[in-house]
């Protein structure tokens, strides 16, 4: 900013804050390779047995598999519904879709505990409790806002005359969507998909209420681990999850740099 520099106090606070944000998370790395049986730093050497325990445990792998399936399925729901809705709102115009767009953002604002208790009763009646479908629907619906936001951002940079030109030359709505609009906003859709995926993959509060035995996702398993037995294999899961998140964000970063060179 024009050569104007922040003062020392601001710089000190900023550095301290970033360290506070990052350092505590990195602590799980040394703890995950401890040679002890309990949560601690390695004493006599590094050991990977907690990773071996984890990857050899059927219940952990099962939870990881379930979480992945639910996250993929709910991402599909969120991406399809969210993308179509964002395109519709963009084309119809801000005024007439104002209320709808506000409603679509509600899941970001209303605490998930409120939604979760409502679902608990609601799904009970629909026989969707502890079902793969139930959790997928809940995660999918609450993932819609992420997609709407990223796709709307991508659409804002899209010249509406391209769409009018396509229609003017006789393309149907479906053809316009498929060949003109979607390719242009693909990076926005992909970004939305990544965030919807992470949203489902990490989601715990709804799962605590609407799933119990049949559906036992990874966050649920970690939650039980934290509350019951704090052992180093928890740290190993944490490390793997962090690496996975970093990988997803790296993919998003690559898409983004392609979008705005």
């Amino acid at each position: 900013m024009g050569g104007y520099k922040a003062g020392p106090l601001a710089r000190i606070i900023a550095w301290a804050t970033v360290l506070y944000l990052i350092l505590p998370i990195t602590i799980v790395l040394p703890v995950s390779v401890t040679d002890q049986r309990f949560l601690s730093l390695p004493e006599h050497g590094i050991s990977f047995r907690h990773y071996a325990n984890l990857l050899g445990s059927e219940s952990w792998l099962n939870s990881i598999g379930q979480s992945a399936l639910i996250a993929v399925a709910s991402t599909v729901i969120a991406v399809v519904a969210g993308t179509l809705c964002a395109i519709g709102c963009w084309r119809i115009g801000r005024r007439s879709t104002e209320l709808l767009r506000a409603v679509m953002l509600l899941p970001l604002i209303i605490p998930s505990i409120v939604y979760a208790i409502g679902l608990y009763r609601y799904f009970g009646r629909l026989d969707l409790l502890d079902r793969f479908l139930g959790v997928t629907l809940a995660h999918g619906v609450t993932g819609i806002p992420y997609v709407i936001i990223t796709v709307s951002t991508a659409l804002a940079a899209f010249d509406p005359r391209l769409e009018q030109a396509a229609r003017g030359m006789g393309a149907s709505l479906g053809q316009t969507l498929r060949w003109v609009i979607l390719p242009r906003i693909f990076p926005g859709i992909a970004s939305g998909a990544i965030f919807a995926f992470i949203h489902s993959w990490d989601e715990l509060v709804m799962v605590l209420f609407i799933a119990s035995r049949q559906v036992f996702t990874l966050p649920r398993k970690i939650w039980d681990g934290i509350n019951e037995n704090l052992d180093p294999s928890m740290a190993a899961v944490a490390v793997l999850l962090i690496l996975f998140t970093i990988a997803l964000l790296a993919v998003d970063g690559m898409l983004r740099s392609r979008r705005d060179p």
């Binding site: 505590p24 998370i25 990490d202 715990l204 970690i222 934290i226 999850l241 962090i242 998140t245």
Partner: peptide, 11 residues
Amino acid sequence: WISVLVRAFAW
């Protein structure tokens, strides 16, 4: 973007 659970566990 890192899981809330992971962060709580670290703390």
